Amino acid sequence: MLDLKRIKAVTLDLDDTLWPVWPAIERAEKALENWLSTHAPMTAALFSNAVVRNEIRAHVVRTRPELKHDMGAIRREAIRLALYRSRENPLLAEQGYEIFFAERNRVTLFEDALQALEFLSARFPVVALSNGNADIERIGLQRYFSANVSAQAFGVGKPDPRIFHAAAGAVDTVPENVLHIGDDAMLDVLGGLNAGMQTVWLNRAASEWKHAEKPHITVGSLTELCDFIAA
Protein backbone atom coordinates (compact mmCIF):
# COMPACT_ATOMS: atom_id res chain seq x y z
CA MET A 1 0.00 0.00 0.00
CA LEU A 2 1.16 3.51 -0.79
CA ASP A 3 2.66 5.40 2.16
CA LEU A 4 1.72 9.03 1.49
CA LYS A 5 3.81 10.33 4.39
CA ARG A 6 7.02 9.21 2.66
CA ILE A 7 6.44 11.15 -0.55
CA LYS A 8 8.77 14.15 -0.92
CA ALA A 9 8.91 14.20 -4.72
CA VAL A 10 7.31 12.62 -7.78
CA THR A 11 8.94 11.26 -10.91
CA LEU A 12 6.65 10.98 -13.91
CA ASP A 13 6.89 9.08 -17.17
CA LEU A 14 5.77 11.03 -20.25
CA ASP A 15 4.85 8.94 -23.33
CA ASP A 16 1.65 6.93 -22.81
CA THR A 17 1.34 8.39 -19.31
CA LEU A 18 0.50 12.01 -20.14
CA TRP A 19 -0.39 11.44 -23.81
CA PRO A 20 -0.68 8.54 -26.27
CA VAL A 21 2.63 8.46 -28.08
CA TRP A 22 1.92 6.44 -31.24
CA PRO A 23 -0.56 8.86 -32.84
CA ALA A 24 2.10 11.57 -32.53
CA ILE A 25 4.81 9.31 -33.97
CA GLU A 26 2.58 8.33 -36.89
CA ARG A 27 1.80 11.98 -37.66
CA ALA A 28 5.50 12.82 -37.42
CA GLU A 29 6.46 10.03 -39.80
CA LYS A 30 3.82 11.21 -42.25
CA ALA A 31 5.09 14.80 -42.02
CA LEU A 32 8.63 13.57 -42.72
CA GLU A 33 7.40 11.47 -45.64
CA ASN A 34 5.63 14.47 -47.17
CA TRP A 35 8.69 16.68 -46.71
CA LEU A 36 11.02 14.10 -48.22
CA SER A 37 8.69 13.66 -51.21
CA THR A 38 9.36 17.29 -52.09
CA HIS A 39 13.00 17.69 -51.07
CA ALA A 40 14.44 14.18 -51.48
CA PRO A 41 12.04 12.03 -53.54
CA MET A 42 14.41 9.06 -53.90
CA THR A 43 14.81 8.90 -50.14
CA ALA A 44 11.05 9.15 -49.70
CA ALA A 45 10.64 6.18 -52.03
CA LEU A 46 13.26 4.22 -50.07
CA PHE A 47 11.61 5.03 -46.74
CA SER A 48 8.21 3.99 -48.08
CA ASN A 49 9.38 0.37 -47.85
CA ALA A 50 8.92 -0.66 -44.20
CA VAL A 51 11.42 -3.51 -44.47
CA VAL A 52 14.11 -1.19 -45.80
CA ARG A 53 13.24 1.49 -43.25
CA ASN A 54 13.59 -0.99 -40.40
CA GLU A 55 16.87 -2.32 -41.81
CA ILE A 56 18.30 1.20 -41.96
CA ARG A 57 17.33 1.86 -38.34
CA ALA A 58 18.77 -1.50 -37.25
CA HIS A 59 22.01 -0.69 -39.09
CA VAL A 60 22.32 2.62 -37.21
CA VAL A 61 21.66 0.93 -33.85
CA ARG A 62 24.19 -1.81 -34.64
CA THR A 63 26.96 0.45 -35.90
CA ARG A 64 26.42 3.35 -33.48
CA PRO A 65 25.92 1.65 -30.08
CA GLU A 66 26.71 4.90 -28.29
CA LEU A 67 23.37 6.23 -29.55
CA LYS A 68 21.22 3.41 -28.16
CA HIS A 69 19.48 5.65 -25.60
CA ASP A 70 19.14 8.65 -27.93
CA MET A 71 16.01 8.11 -30.01
CA GLY A 72 16.42 11.44 -31.76
CA ALA A 73 20.00 10.77 -32.83
CA ILE A 74 19.08 7.29 -34.09
CA ARG A 75 16.28 8.69 -36.24
CA ARG A 76 18.43 11.56 -37.50
CA GLU A 77 21.21 9.18 -38.51
CA ALA A 78 18.69 6.86 -40.18
CA ILE A 79 17.47 9.75 -42.30
CA ARG A 80 21.06 10.66 -43.13
CA LEU A 81 21.88 7.09 -44.15
CA ALA A 82 18.77 6.86 -46.30
CA LEU A 83 19.72 10.10 -48.05
CA TYR A 84 23.23 8.78 -48.64
CA ARG A 85 21.99 5.47 -50.03
CA SER A 86 19.59 7.34 -52.29
CA ARG A 87 22.43 9.56 -53.54
CA GLU A 88 20.70 12.67 -52.26
CA ASN A 89 22.11 15.36 -49.99
CA PRO A 90 22.87 13.92 -46.51
CA LEU A 91 22.93 17.47 -45.14
CA LEU A 92 19.14 17.46 -45.46
CA ALA A 93 19.00 15.07 -42.49
CA GLU A 94 18.98 17.86 -39.91
CA GLN A 95 16.10 19.70 -41.55
CA GLY A 96 14.19 16.50 -42.15
CA TYR A 97 14.58 15.47 -38.54
CA GLU A 98 13.33 18.87 -37.37
CA ILE A 99 10.18 18.36 -39.45
CA PHE A 100 9.68 15.02 -37.72
CA PHE A 101 10.52 16.29 -34.23
CA ALA A 102 8.22 19.30 -34.40
CA GLU A 103 5.27 17.05 -35.20
CA ARG A 104 6.34 14.43 -32.63
CA ASN A 105 5.90 17.09 -29.95
CA ARG A 106 2.40 18.09 -31.07
CA VAL A 107 0.85 15.63 -28.66
CA THR A 108 -2.74 15.36 -27.49
CA LEU A 109 -2.85 15.09 -23.71
CA PHE A 110 -5.05 12.54 -22.01
CA GLU A 111 -8.06 14.30 -20.51
CA ASP A 112 -6.77 13.82 -16.96
CA ALA A 113 -3.17 14.91 -17.61
CA LEU A 114 -3.26 18.67 -17.19
CA GLN A 115 -5.32 18.66 -14.01
CA ALA A 116 -3.08 15.96 -12.55
CA LEU A 117 0.04 17.96 -13.37
CA GLU A 118 -1.43 21.00 -11.65
CA PHE A 119 -2.38 18.92 -8.61
CA LEU A 120 0.95 17.11 -8.28
CA SER A 121 3.20 20.09 -8.97
CA ALA A 122 1.36 22.17 -6.36
CA ARG A 123 2.28 19.56 -3.73
CA PHE A 124 5.62 18.06 -4.76
CA PRO A 125 8.60 18.76 -6.99
CA VAL A 126 7.89 16.76 -10.15
CA VAL A 127 10.64 15.30 -12.35
CA ALA A 128 10.01 14.19 -15.94
CA LEU A 129 11.65 10.77 -16.28
CA SER A 130 11.55 9.29 -19.77
CA ASN A 131 13.32 6.94 -22.14
CA GLY A 132 11.84 8.92 -25.02
CA ASN A 133 12.80 12.26 -26.50
CA ALA A 134 9.67 14.33 -25.96
CA ASP A 135 10.44 18.00 -25.30
CA ILE A 136 8.31 19.25 -22.38
CA GLU A 137 9.21 22.86 -23.24
CA ARG A 138 7.97 22.53 -26.83
CA ILE A 139 4.87 20.76 -25.62
CA GLY A 140 4.22 23.60 -23.17
CA LEU A 141 4.43 21.69 -19.91
CA GLN A 142 7.78 22.86 -18.55
CA ARG A 143 6.21 24.96 -15.78
CA TYR A 144 4.93 21.83 -14.04
CA PHE A 145 8.36 20.20 -13.74
CA SER A 146 11.22 20.95 -11.39
CA ALA A 147 13.64 18.85 -13.46
CA ASN A 148 13.82 16.70 -16.57
CA VAL A 149 15.91 13.50 -16.70
CA SER A 150 15.91 11.62 -19.99
CA ALA A 151 17.75 8.53 -21.16
CA GLN A 152 19.21 10.40 -24.13
CA ALA A 153 20.74 13.07 -21.87
CA PHE A 154 21.76 10.76 -19.02
CA GLY A 155 23.06 7.93 -21.21
CA VAL A 156 21.16 5.23 -19.33
CA GLY A 157 17.48 4.40 -19.54
CA LYS A 158 14.78 2.84 -17.41
CA PRO A 159 14.67 0.28 -15.82
CA ASP A 160 18.30 0.87 -14.82
CA PRO A 161 18.20 2.12 -11.21
CA ARG A 162 20.83 4.76 -11.94
CA ILE A 163 18.43 6.95 -13.91
CA PHE A 164 15.86 6.74 -11.11
CA HIS A 165 18.53 7.71 -8.59
CA ALA A 166 19.56 10.61 -10.82
CA ALA A 167 15.96 11.81 -10.95
CA ALA A 168 15.74 11.73 -7.14
CA GLY A 169 19.02 13.61 -6.88
CA ALA A 170 17.77 16.24 -9.32
CA VAL A 171 15.35 17.44 -6.61
CA ASP A 172 17.69 16.77 -3.67
CA THR A 173 15.93 13.78 -2.21
CA VAL A 174 16.50 10.04 -1.85
CA PRO A 175 14.75 7.31 -3.85
CA GLU A 176 12.74 5.96 -0.91
CA ASN A 177 11.03 9.36 -0.63
CA VAL A 178 10.06 9.44 -4.32
CA LEU A 179 6.83 8.25 -5.93
CA HIS A 180 7.31 7.12 -9.53
CA ILE A 181 4.28 7.12 -11.84
CA GLY A 182 4.25 5.36 -15.19
CA ASP A 183 2.39 3.08 -17.56
CA ASP A 184 5.05 0.47 -18.34
CA ALA A 185 5.12 -2.51 -15.97
CA MET A 186 8.76 -3.37 -16.61
CA LEU A 187 10.37 0.01 -17.24
CA ASP A 188 8.39 2.08 -14.75
CA VAL A 189 7.07 -0.16 -12.01
CA LEU A 190 9.74 -2.85 -11.70
CA GLY A 191 12.43 -0.29 -12.48
CA GLY A 192 11.16 2.07 -9.81
CA LEU A 193 10.78 -0.71 -7.24
CA ASN A 194 14.32 -1.92 -7.91
CA ALA A 195 15.56 1.64 -7.40
CA GLY A 196 13.88 1.79 -3.98
CA MET A 197 10.97 4.04 -4.92
CA GLN A 198 7.26 3.72 -4.29
CA THR A 199 5.51 3.12 -7.58
CA VAL A 200 2.18 3.77 -9.27
CA TRP A 201 1.13 1.63 -12.22
CA LEU A 202 -1.05 3.74 -14.49
CA ASN A 203 -3.08 0.98 -16.11
CA ARG A 204 -5.41 2.77 -18.50
CA ALA A 205 -6.13 -0.39 -20.50
CA ALA A 206 -7.08 -2.55 -17.47
CA SER A 207 -4.31 -5.02 -18.31
CA GLU A 208 -3.41 -7.97 -16.07
CA TRP A 209 -0.39 -7.62 -13.80
CA LYS A 210 1.99 -10.50 -14.60
CA HIS A 211 4.94 -10.05 -12.22
CA ALA A 212 5.71 -11.29 -8.72
CA GLU A 213 6.61 -7.84 -7.43
CA LYS A 214 3.68 -5.46 -7.37
CA PRO A 215 3.25 -1.68 -7.55
CA HIS A 216 2.29 0.13 -4.38
CA ILE A 217 -0.93 1.20 -6.08
CA THR A 218 -2.59 0.59 -9.46
CA VAL A 219 -4.89 3.22 -10.94
CA GLY A 220 -6.87 3.47 -14.13
CA SER A 221 -6.35 7.22 -14.46
CA LEU A 222 -4.30 10.06 -13.06
CA THR A 223 -7.50 11.49 -11.62
CA GLU A 224 -7.91 8.35 -9.53
CA LEU A 225 -4.38 8.77 -8.19
CA CYS A 226 -4.91 12.43 -7.33
CA ASP A 227 -8.16 11.61 -5.55
CA PHE A 228 -6.34 8.97 -3.51
CA ILE A 229 -3.58 11.42 -2.52
CA ALA A 230 -6.10 14.13 -1.65
CA ALA A 231 -8.33 11.86 0.47
Rank of each mutant, 00 (worst) to 15 (best):
K5G: 01
K5R: 08
R6Y: 00
I7G: 01
A9P: 08
V10M: 10
T11N: 09
P23F: 10
E26W: 02
W35Q: 02
L36C: 02
S37V: 00
M42V: 10
N49I: 05
N49A: 05
A50L: 12
V51I: 14
V52G: 00
R53L: 11
H59P: 00
H59Q: 13
V61D: 00
T63E: 15
R64V: 02
K68E: 11
D70V: 07
M71C: 00
A73F: 07
E77Q: 15
R80S: 15
L81T: 08
L81K: 06
L83N: 06
Y84M: 04
R85Q: 15
R87L: 11
E88L: 02
N89V: 04
P90C: 08
L91P: 01
L92H: 06
A93H: 08
E94K: 06
E98A: 13
E98L: 12
E98M: 11
F101E: 14
L109G: 04
F110T: 02
E111L: 05
A113G: 11
E118I: 12
S121W: 14
R123F: 14
F124H: 13
P125W: 12
V127W: 14
L129Q: 05
G132W: 14
R138F: 10
I139C: 08
F145P: 12
A147W: 14
V149L: 05
F154S: 08
F154N: 07
F154Q: 11
V156N: 06
V156C: 09
G157E: 11
P159W: 10
I163Y: 09
A168R: 06
A170H: 03
V171L: 05
T173M: 03
P175S: 14
E176F: 06
N177G: 00
V178C: 14
D183L: 00
A185W: 02
A185T: 03
D188Q: 07
M197K: 05
W201K: 03
K210F: 01
E213S: 09
H216C: 02
T218P: 01
V219W: 05
V219S: 05
G220H: 05
G220V: 03
E224N: 04
E224I: 01
